Simulated scan of single mutants.
Amino acid sequence: MAASGSAEGGGFEAPSPADFYQPLIGSGQWAFTRPMLLMIISIIFIAGFLIATTRKAAVVPGKGQWLTEQVYNFVRNSVAQDTIGSKEFIKYVPLLFSLFMLILVNNLFGIIPPFQYPTFSRVGFPIGLALLVYVIYHAIGIKRKGVAGYFKGLIPSGLPKGIYVLIIPLELITYFITRPVTLALRLFGNMFAGHMLLLLFILGGQYMVLEGGPGLKVAGIGSWLLAFVMTVFEALIEFLQAYIFTLLAATYIADSLSNEH
């Protein structure tokens, strides 16, 4: 991701949120931006990789097939089956696997040249995925229990009717507002903040090495070393955010299927 390292007056200009808006074609809200292009690239890459590694599947897998199977089995067994349960999990594995792959690849774009831009640092993308999950888990619950049964299940059983006036608004806020908002903002916040810090260390180090005296040049090299360490740490965060988003989606689906809900 490109950002200006110095201002017109010659001083260092720290990266800002405005640097994350990078239109390629047009301007304003209808512009075709860099993260849009990266999302398209990620979809093409994921589809091509999965087709290439599975169309000639063998009992003894090659490296590509082995990698695909490991990721698939991780989502299938450690996310879908463990969270939704062994009776009904299998039908939701394609959704959860697709979510995990899409988020992971786009997150990793933030540290892989020449992309170096985490797509989900633009808030519209995590909002879109969160709304998709929102619609799906509500639709699953309503299909299973009916509209009346689904909303009735929002109230925990065994509670005195006198506190319904407090519980019902809280449950409605949780299921219809808090869940989708936190699902989107958690992913966005981590990708945005992590990439902003990497930019700050890299561009700050560049400015000190190119423009500073001997002491600042040493500090600039130290800034680059910290940026390398943070890049490794950021890769872990990017994986964890893909896992957490997918796990929460599975949790919400399981909650909609549960008889207690």
Rank of each mutant, 00 (worst) to 15 (best):
G26H: 11
T54Q: 10
S16E: 06
L50D: 09
M39D: 05
N77G: 05
A58F: 08
I103N: 04
M39N: 09
T119N: 10
V123G: 01
F32L: 14
Y72L: 11
I25R: 03
I43R: 10
A31L: 08
G48S: 09
R55G: 02
L37A: 14
L99M: 15
N77Y: 00
V71I: 14
I111G: 00
L96P: 03
Q70Y: 08
F89Y: 15
K63R: 13
P94I: 05
I25Y: 05
P61N: 13
I43G: 08
K91T: 05
G26R: 03
F89A: 08
Y92S: 11
P113K: 02
G124W: 05
I84T: 06
P23K: 14
M39H: 10
L38F: 12
F115W: 01
G110K: 01
L96A: 12
N106G: 01
L99K: 12
N73M: 05
V93E: 10
N106Y: 06
N106A: 04
G62A: 12
E69V: 07
T53F: 03
T83R: 11
L95K: 08
A31N: 05
F100W: 06
E69K: 09
V71G: 01
Y21P: 04
Q29K: 11
F20T: 01
L99R: 13
A18N: 10
S42A: 15
L108K: 01
G26F: 14
R122G: 05
F109W: 01
R55C: 09
N73G: 11
T68E: 15
A18Y: 05
S121K: 04
I84Y: 01
A52K: 09
N77P: 04
M36Q: 14
F125E: 06
L108D: 00
P126E: 00
E88T: 12
I84L: 02
G62R: 13
L50S: 07
I40C: 11
I112T: 04
V75G: 03
I41S: 06
L108M: 03
F97E: 12
S27A: 10
Y92A: 12
Y21E: 12
L67I: 13
I44K: 08
R76G: 03
